[in-house]
Structures are given as C-alpha cells and as structure tokens.
Computed example of a mutant assay.
Amino acid sequence: MFDKLFNKFSNDTKEEIKLDENKMPQHIAIIMDGNGRWAQKRDLPRVAGHKRGMEVVKDITKTASGLGVKVLTLYAFSTENWKRPKKEVNFLMDLPVKFFDTFVPELIENNIKVNVMGYTEYLPEKTQKAVNDAIEQTKNNTGMILNFALNYGSRAEIITAVKKIALDVKNQKLAVDEIDEDVISKSLMTQSVAPYNDPELLIRTSGEERISNFLLWQLAYSELVFSDKFWPEYKPSDLIEDINKYQHRDRRFGGVKEGK
C-alpha cells in the first residue's frame, strides 16, 4: 500500500524521494494557511480559496492515511477567525456541511475516523450537526484519525484545562503535588487522540512562520516545517517532501546524542 501510494504521488516532485516507513510521524498537524491570498492573486473572492482548500483537505487526508500516519490534525477555524467578515465566516460555517456530505463515504472506504476538538458548542446548529453526524458515521473506523481543530484556540484550551485541574484540587480529587505534565496533557483537548497527543511534525503553508495560537503545549518538541505553497495549491507530493524534511531532522529533545 505504501509503495503504491508513494509512486502515485511522487511523479511531480523534482527528484525521487524515498520515505522511511520506520520514521513516519505518527501525528502530523497542519495550519492550512493562504486560502484567501491564493484567491485574491487570481482575482477571485476569498471564499473561492476556501472552497478549493476543501478539496485539498480530501487529497492530503487520503495521502496521510496511505502513508501510515495515525493522526492528522487540521487547523480549520480558530477562536480568532470570528473577527473575519461575516460573509466569509458564514461560508466557513457551511463548509463542514458540504465537506462531510461528499467525503464521509470516502472516509469510511479508507477506514478513517473523524474527530473534532474545539469549542464546538458555539458553532451554528447546522455545523454542529454535520460534525456530529460525521463523527457518528465513522466511529467504528480503526485507521487514521482525521482530527479537526474547529473553533479552537490554544490559550483558551489551556485556560479551560487549568480551570478543570483547579476544580479537581478544590474538590479534593487531585493534590497540588500531583499536578505534572501528564495531568496537564490529559486535561487538554488532544487527549481525544491519545496516545498520539503531541504532533511530531507541524506544517504551516503560505510562507508565514507563526504558530498562531495552535497547540502551544503540544508543540513543545515538534519539528516545524514552513511551506511557501498556499494551501489551495498544496499537493500530496508537497506533503511527502515535508515529511522527508522531518525524517532528516536530528531530534534530540533537549539532550545530546553520543558522539555529537
């Protein structure tokens, strides 16, 4: 399966890339940036970029699954994105409805499970229904988890976790001395994709080099790759190239390897 998928998507790369299956990141997170700028460069409305970006999500999801990735987390809508023009926000809230309506059969066919993290209770009812239906329809799938960060912000997530821990201490369910990294990790929204809570690789498209309030705790030791491609033009071959960059990083986690 790995060889077939690699051969299918490696043809448009500048040179042949051989990925090491044993070094495949188990959790990849992507900040899908550049939809609006991609559209504007083509004299199209910003929403055209979001529409094209939805198709890219489908391609990248199937590619990541075929490569053996366990969790693919996509930053779909941040808690700050409500500041955008109302017309654009309304379009973004409609996207999950259109996306899951057409893509769920393929997700089931590819054994991919949908997960969503974020403050989804503040989303429009139709968006919540589309999300919940997709989760229900794919709940028995045992392959890769397609994890959407929807109405998600990392600082808000951390505040929510701190409040939860404080309440547990107040109710004597937890002692102050018992608060450690594991307790905090389990209180964050990525506990829903455990044991793959922390991404090994973060990719951000569009050339911007910021984290943008995304997985601030979880990215402590992630490898960061910044792609110049706008998300609507990001291809499976680009994902392969970015994974290849990850595989050639020297990951020391703050330590020193012998002889270096």
Rank of each mutant, 00 (worst) to 15 (best):
K4S: 10
L5P: 00
N7L: 11
K14H: 00
E15V: 08
E16F: 14
P25Y: 07
A29K: 01
A39C: 08
Q40E: 15
K41Y: 14
D43W: 14
L44F: 15
L44P: 11
L44C: 09
H50A: 09
H50D: 06
G53M: 10
G53Q: 09
M54H: 02
V56N: 02
V57I: 13
K58S: 06
G68F: 12
G68L: 05
G68A: 07
K70F: 08
A76S: 14
T79K: 09
K83E: 10
R84P: 06
R84G: 10
V89F: 14
V89Q: 12
F91S: 02
F91G: 04
L92C: 11
M93D: 07
D94H: 01
V97R: 03
F103Y: 14
P105D: 05
E106Q: 11
L107F: 09
N111Q: 06
I112T: 00
G118R: 06
G118Y: 09
Y122A: 01
L123E: 07
E125I: 15
N132K: 15
N140A: 04
N141H: 05
I145G: 01
N151P: 08
R155L: 06
A156E: 14
I159K: 06
A161M: 03
K163R: 15
K170L: 08
N171Y: 11
A175V: 03
I179S: 04
E181L: 11
S192W: 00
N197C: 05
D198R: 05
E200Q: 15
E200L: 05
E200N: 01
L201M: 05
L202F: 10
N213P: 06
F214Y: 13
L215A: 12
S222Q: 04
W231Y: 15
W231L: 04
P232A: 11
K235M: 15
S237C: 13
I240Q: 00
K245F: 12
H248W: 07
F253C: 08
G254M: 08
